[in-house]
Amino acid sequence: MGMISAVLGRLSQAFLLLVAMSVIGFIGIHSVGNPVFNVVNIETATPEDIRGATIALGLDQPIWHQYVVFVDNVVRGNFGTSYIYHLPAFELLMSKLPATLELASIAMLIAAPLGTALGLVAGRRIGTLFDRTLLQASVSALSIPSFWLAMMLILVGALLTGWFPSGGRGTTAHLLGQDWSFLTANGLWHLVLPAMALAIPNIALIARLSRSGTIEVESLDFTRFCRAKGLSSRRILFRHTLPNISVPIVTIIGLQFGGMLAFAVVVESIFSWPGVGKLLIDSIQLLDRPVVMATLTFVAVAFVLLNALVDLFYAVLDPRVRLSS
């Protein structure tokens, strides 16, 4: 029972957040200038044209009615038609989504195990050269802008050595009605650099988290008991320490996956990866307003929902949270 109310509470919180965001978005759009002038030409329009366009856009309606129409359109994924591609904006967005999801998933598949392992080892040997190097490296990896990192990867990985291609998706293969790069060798080759650009800051973040968790858990009594029992350090590390630090790590993986959707904007534009992020930047530069609105709304909503899911998962995973509610 407690569980269900916790779930409902968290979901209603996410819902309220989305309502707040829609109000802010609605105000934002209306404060940027009269949308009528997106439709008619300012210089040549007669007052009748303007009145006609105002009625056609529903701007003569009361403000609450306009808001309801706005929310209704957002919920139904109706953001209008792209000025450039002449496709419904939401459909266009969905066609670009697999590329972004592929990139983010591969990056997380690299970052999560690697970051956790590095953190475990460093936490085990505090103060050693390895530990100090990892700490320093993670600080710099987290403080440099992602576009700089991506550029250096291109410079070193593509231009100086010629090992990897500098952009594009490469050959794709068809699966479940979508094109995927990871199914072909050439596509995988193209994935390496952009995935690394997305993964490196996350490796640093996860490694720091898993390091501090390991230090905390290793000082607890039960670890001492395990050691006294004669268990090998490897067994202690993987069977006892790892499960105990897994909750915050899973949380951060979930949250960072949402963050990757946002950071993909930078990485995708640099590597010409045809995903949601590149679509957003291209559309901003081409003043393709419906697509910009659709993309930003989608990323923000996806992020809020992902946050809520992570919180719920947290409750399921951690016995203390589960039992206390």
Binding site: L17, G258, G259, F263, V265
Partner: peptide, 20 residues
């Protein structure tokens, strides 16, 4: 409002702001 903003990545907030 603060919670809403801090729950989104800074780069996303900045992007939304600059687009608007």
């Amino acid at each position: 409002l603060v919670d809403l903003q801090l729950s989104l990545p800074t780069i996303l907030v900045a992007l939304i702001a600059i687009v608007t």
